[in-house]
Design a binder for these strands. Structure first.
Lengths: 350, 350
DNA sequence: CTGAAAGCGCTTACAG
DNA sequence: CTGAAAGCGCTTACAG
């Protein structure tokens, strides 16, 4: 069943059928009704490719998760507490608005090419990019294809410095800096003076923000930052485990450890407990993300909640808006975090 | 840049360019090389819609997760320990083979329509359906669209009884029956005689299999099945929690409880612990799925590992095979499970 | 082995 | 308000 068949049945031309389908104003109500009825009756669905070829959108958005880290386990990204909820919300929100979503993971430059192709071949109307590391080239490449783009977790200043054409770009962030400050000050208020950190991936905006906030907050409160309490974790639990064991071997432990994400926090807890260290009696732990696991480990993990649901929803709404309006001004939204206090921190005050 | 441009540059016709792109044999090596070179040089990508319109495939497969359960929390499906790894593996495996994947969740009949449309509009070459409940109509509807279909977790006998055209259908299952038998006999060997169950969703193949195996195994060993130890959980943690609390209130507890999935097992553990019941001293718990959480709760959960990764990979390989070969015979694969013994069960023997 | 032409099913100026 | 016609960028008989 093609538009031509509908046209015949309705006694009009394909042009008119098309006008009805696309909701153009210049069709009398009566004609519109008639055509609509025939369409309904026959469960007619316009061929999406023909529409796309003729210049219409595809009602499909892309969701691309970048994970180009040499030592990362390649195939666990959607079980990752960070990506899983994004997929979740993005798919549901987009679906609810009548959009399909095309998913592709980027583990390698090859994958990146495939994603570029998806844009070039016009398979999608726009894309959401998550996990972008500090590399503006990707972003400008994508942008060059002319399709709208939404970035989750990206440093705005980099975009601005590069003077990219930002007309169909939008950035969604969380206030990780403030969230980290809150977490660190919570520990300080508990009486902690020796506060360590497991850093996230520093090529990542959130990785840098969380570390910067840690540094600045300690400085602000006149507390020392010991190199041997600053561990590199790259957001990876294996690294966190290894680094914590190394710290244990060195014989020195801070009284509190801020972990740049929950995966690392939980891994650190495992390492500590296995070495006979008690949490929170011997050491307090704070995580970041408030992943599902956080409330299930023991002791329950105090963590900074990342508003990942809201962020994902905003990303979809933004991309759809950009797809539909042609373009709009560059925009950026930043969502607040929230410290969720559980049982992994102890007060030293009494 | 269109195929015509490539043709001009290469001094051939669009027909020949097309032949090269589609790897047809009737092109001399020299011509092929020449065309290929030009394509490379200009980073030419054939428009996917034009190809599709002209009758070629779309190199896209659909992944559709059905979750039409009234009382289920609507937007958590990909964080679900069952679906998350499927998304994971399906996306990665498909991507690695050069296929894109379109994801849509089915919460309502409306969503189901959208998925049917995806088939009708030829947006995808084939689809993977997961979470299908006992409703053959869906399956036959999809099959009616003529596209290949792979079902994960579906009772083959239903398909056979319906005499559906199975030429482009494939089913991927796990041996849940055997897995459950192994789990129950493990409990029996530990000395348990009063073994309860929290049932899964009985409209689901795996839900029925797990229950059936439970029943048959107890019978086989001459053990009683008490109605009040048979709880309905529908695979949902809220239900499991409620039912366990109800059982606690009744004052009678089995010595062991088999839970049809880990989500319910963990929820049951929460309920029991909160009511002062100690695991495994007062009651032994076995789960099913071996979800990520299983090894993180305390005590660590003994669970039947579901080979979901292998199943997902097989589903993708099968669907791609079906897409490419046009069609092949009906096939079905069933993967073995494995009992992972951890700390949630106690021996009563001594 | 290869090109001209028809066709896939839409949309959109254009003319009326 | 509406239809005929061109066009979107491919593929594929068909003829040679």
């Amino acid at each position: 069943m093609r538009s031509e068949d509908i046209a015949k049945l309705a006694g009009v031309s394909r042009s008119t059928v098309s006008r009805v389908i696309n909701n153009y104003p210049n069709v009398p109500a009566a004609t519109r009704e008639k055509v609509l009825r025939i369409i309904e009756q026959h469960h007619y669905e316009p061929n999406s490719f023909a529409r796309a070829l003729a210049g219409k959108g595809t009602d499909t958005i892309g969701l691309f998760a970048i994970s180009m880290n040499e030592n990362e386990d390649e195939s666990r990204i959607y079980q990752n507490s960070y990506f899983a909820p994004i997929v979740d919300i993005v798919v549901d929100t987009a679906n609810a608005q009548g959009f399909y979503v095309l998913i592709h993971t980027i583990y390698s430059p090859d994958d990146f090419q495939k994603v570029k192709q998806a844009f070039q071949q016009k398979r999608i109307d726009g894309g959401i990019l998550v996990g972008t590391q500090r590399d503006i080239n990707f972003v400008s490449d994508m942008l060059g294809e002319g399709a709208p783009l939404v970035l989750i977790d990206y440093d705005i200043t980099e975009i601005i410095n590069e003077r990219l054409d930002k007309d169909h770009l939008s950035i969604i962030n969380s206030r990780d800096y403030e969230g980290t400050v809150e977490a660190i000050e919570y520990l300080i208020n508990l009486g902690h003076q020796e506060i360590g950190i497991i850093k996230g991936r520093m090529s990542t905006f959130s990785g840098r923000e969380r570390f910067l906030a840690y540094e600045n907050t300690l400085k602000k409160h006149g507390l020392p930052i010991h190199d041997h309490f600053v561990l590199s974790g790259d957001f990876l639990k294996e690294n966190a485990y290894r680094e914590v064991v190394r710290m244990l071997d060195s014989g020195k432990l801070p009284t509190a450890l801020f972990c740049s994400n929950d995966a690392m926090a939980i891994s650190a807890m495992d390492a500590l407990i296995q070495h006979g260290v008690t949490i929170p009696d011997d050491i307090s732990i704070v995580g970041f993300d408030d992943a599902l696991l956080a409330s299930h480990v023991s002791p329950k993990l105090t963590s900074v909640r990342l508003p990942i649901d809201e962020m994902s929803r905003a990303a979809v709404e933004k991309i759809i808006e950009l797809c539909q309006s042609g373009q709009s001004a560059f925009s950026t939204i930043s969502f607040p975090t929230q410290l969720i206090v559980r049982d992994s921190c102890k007060s030293l005050s009494n």
